[in-house]
């Protein structure tokens, strides 16, 4: 008879953030909220997700730095880009040209570094959760909220810069075609809350979409893992259950690799689209 396992507890424990880092049970570093990191009602003590976020950022930097240096060497030797550097270049250029510039328009090149950083940062954070003992920082609403707030600020500020203060205010108080006089003013005022809501909904959707997609995969995998613990005690069937569940989990893991890439792409793409919409607002 196997030990009773609370699957819900396991799942939440896995997805939850914590003041700990390591490979449980072999090596575990634990700490508590530090007093000196207290900022008003908030405590800024780094958590597990912060650490994985930093690791992801470091890996992104390392990848790009190494690829960049290799590319420069290859170009200096008049060689065509090849291997790892070429692959990274192709991905970076895809994000730059087909995500940023294609959706933002003529000012796309200015925003391309932002979109590229966003894409690779999210991609690495997503993928960090798929390596053993890793954690998905993007599976935390705080992280995706941070990313969405940043996207929101960039979108709106790009609008203010591009359209000017008056032009930007027109995105909140729209001028209704074919209306003039008091009717237009009333309609404009009436539309303002809807426009403001629209502005808020976009980053909110970005935030929840990424969080939901990254969390759901882990929940599904862990719940399936739970099947083993729930039915593993059945004699004669335990091996079949083990094999089928493991196969299913393998499939979902592969799907997760795809989802991790897709969600990074979606986040970057939608941010680019929203910036583009703002740039071409009239």
């Amino acid at each position: 008879m196997q030990q009773q396992v609370d699957i819900g507890e396991v799942v939440l424990h896995h997805a939850a953030d914590a003041y700990s880092f390591g490979i449980d049970p072999y090596f575990l570093l634990e700490w508590h909220a530090w007093e000196f990191m207290q900022l008003g009602p908030f405590n800024l003590t780094p958590t597990k997700h912060v650490i994985f976020m930093v690791i992801a950022a470091l890996l992104v930097f390392l990848t790009m730095r190494v690829a960049g240096q290799k590319l420069q060497q290859q170009r200096a030797n008049e060689n065509a880009p090849k291997g790892f550097a070429n692959a990274v270049e192709a991905m970076v250029l895809f994000v730059r040209n087909d995500v940023a510039i294609a959706n933002i328009g003529q000012d796309g090149a200015k925003f391309a570094p932002f979109i590229m950083t966003l894409f690779f940062f999210i991609l690495y954070m997503n993928l960090m959760g798929l390596i053993p003992f890793g954690a998905t920082a993007t599976g935390n609403l705080g992280v995706t909220a941070g990313l969405a707030i940043m996207a929101f600020v960039v979108i709106e500020i790009s609008g203010v810069v591009k359209l000017g203060p008056v032009g930007y205010m027109r995105t909140i108080f729209p001028s209704i075609p074919g209306l003039s006089g008091p009717g237009a003013v009333a309609m404009s005022l009436f539309m303002a809350p809807i426009e403001l809501l629209g502005k808020m909904v976009k980053p909110f959707a970005l935030c929840v979409r990424l969080f939901g997609n990254m969390t759901a995969g882990h929940f599904v995998i862990l719940s399936m893992m739970g099947i083993i613990f729930l039915f593993g005690h059945l004699t004669f069937w335990n091996w079949a259950i083990g094999i089928s569940v493991a196969t299913l989990i393998l499939g979902i893991m592969m799907l997760e690799i795809f989802v991790a890439t897709l969600q990074a792409y979606v986040f970057a793409l939608l941010t680019a689209v929203f910036i583009g919409l703002m740039q071409h607002e009239h």
Partner: peptide
């Protein structure tokens, strides 16, 4: 959404 995480993300 923890403020600390939002801060660290940014």
């Amino acid at each position: 959404p923890e403020f600390g995480l939002i801060f660290w993300t940014l």
